[in-house]
């Protein structure tokens, strides 16, 4: 009887330990994944081509250059976007100062009227330039906003070993009720994500279509978000990626919003 009790206690302790360890591990994995995905190097830039495909197969194309500067790993970041296509937004620039846990600051410069407009932080689940990517998909959802649990440690996606992690928002959130992420064990990058609504129905799927190593950083150079129920998708392709170019803080100001840094934006 005593033995059984001790055994029981040990077992309970072990389960408890595993559970806490697992939660801690899951959070750590998601943190590392977030850093690998959104914070490679101290800065980065790329030419982005966005293909938005509707249910009927109609395509819309956006082309822009994106510059990023990390103020703090996992923390504050600055983004600068210069639009090239389509024609009606060409030469338009957009700047975001991202504050995880706070309200982002956003500015838009409309060259046709020489106007810098500060726009309210707004809904992070809103579409980014008509696409199926949300603002949050572009600049990242902080890992502390969800509770993470490891579902499986022995998944494979396209031959890559991966963790399967479930993430549930701490606060009620419109973006998803649950997210399942397959995180590459080697690169920490998300290989696939499934977003479920509150009814438990699959809403959208993210996939890392192409991963390349650039400047020592594994990088998702092509990614797709598919909206399952609406049968539409958006693919983002990144070209001419560079990291640690030494982008100065001054680029992320109204001055450069009005006159793009042509050294980087061609």
């Amino acid at each position: 009887m005593k033995k059984l009790l001790v055994f029981g206690m040990v077992l309970a302790l072990a389960i408890f330990a595993t559970a806490t360890l697992s939660a801690a591990d899951a959070t750590e994995i998601m943190k590392q994944s977030h850093l690998a995905y959104y914070y490679s190097g101290d800065d980065g830039m790329a030419k982005v081509s966005m293909k938005i495909v509707s249910k009927s197969g109609k395509e819309r194309i956006r082309e822009f250059t994106i510059l990023r500067l990390d103020i703090e790993d996992g923390g504050q970041q600055k983004y600068y976007t210069y639009f090239k296509k389509p024609s009606d937004v060409s030469r338009l620039t957009f700047m975001v100062w991202k504050y995880p846990g706070g309200d982002d600051k956003r500015w838009l410069y409309m060259p046709a009227i020489d106007l810098i407009k500060q726009i309210s932080a707004g809904d992070k689940t809103a579409s980014f330039v008509n696409s199926d990517f949300t603002y949050e998909d572009i600049s990242g959802r902080h890992w502390t906003e969800d509770v993470h649990t490891i579902i499986s440690e022995s998944e494979t996606v396209d031959g890559k070993e991966a963790y399967l992690i479930s993430s549930i928002p701490v606060k009620k959130y419109k973006g998803f009720a649950e997210k399942k992420s397959w995180i590459d064990k080697k690169t920490n990058l998300p290989l696939k994500e499934e977003y479920y609504d509150k009814k438990g129905e699959l809403e959208k799927i993210f996939s890392a279509d192409v991963i390349e190593e650039i400047g020592g950083f594994p990088t998702i150079t092509q990614r797709t978000i598919k909206i399952i129920k609406k049968n539409k998708y958006t693919t983002l392709t990144f070209d001419e990626i560079t990291y640690n170019t030494g982008l100065g803080d001054e680029i992320f100001t109204e001055r450069y919003l009005k006159t793009p840094p042509r050294k980087y934006i061609k």
């Binding site: 726009i119 309210s120 707004g122 809904d123 689940t125 809103a126």
Partner: peptide, 10 residues
């Protein structure tokens, strides 16, 4: 004063 009151409604 300007605010986004709902998604895509300002």
């Amino acid at each position: 004063f300007e605010k986004e009151l709902m998604t895509d409604f300002t």
